[in-house]
């Protein structure tokens, strides 16, 4: 369920009294409802689902995950290299 993809907020404005914005997905721009991310600013990243921003992405958490993945399996690979 719930196809959601990350994009960067490029512009924020009001339409019909609702907070809307333009979000960039690697070169594709789409109008997105920003009503549920009142704290988000231009330049921040969000996850968009059916034209709605549902959450703000946290860069520190993302970096932490990637750092963890870098450490994965290194020990096993070294062991495998020694055996082979």
């Amino acid at each position: 369920m719930c196809l959601g993809i990350p994009g960067q907020v490029k512009e924020i404005y009001e339409l019909n009294g609702v907070r809307m914005g333009k979000v960039d997905f690697a070169g594709i721009t789409k109008e997105v409802c920003l009503a549920y991310v009142p704290e988000i600013g231009v330049g921040d990243y969000t996850i968009v689902h059916v034209g709605f921003a549902i959450t703000q992405l946290d860069e520190a958490s993302a970096q932490e995950s990637l750092r963890l993945f870098e450490e994965m399996g290194v020990l096993q690979e070294e062991l495998a290299d020694e055996v082979s």
Partner: peptide
Amino acid sequence: YLDEFRNPELARRLFAE
């Protein structure tokens, strides 16, 4: 937040783990 989480080398490490 996209290609970083599709990295084949890191995937290989996670599989190994």
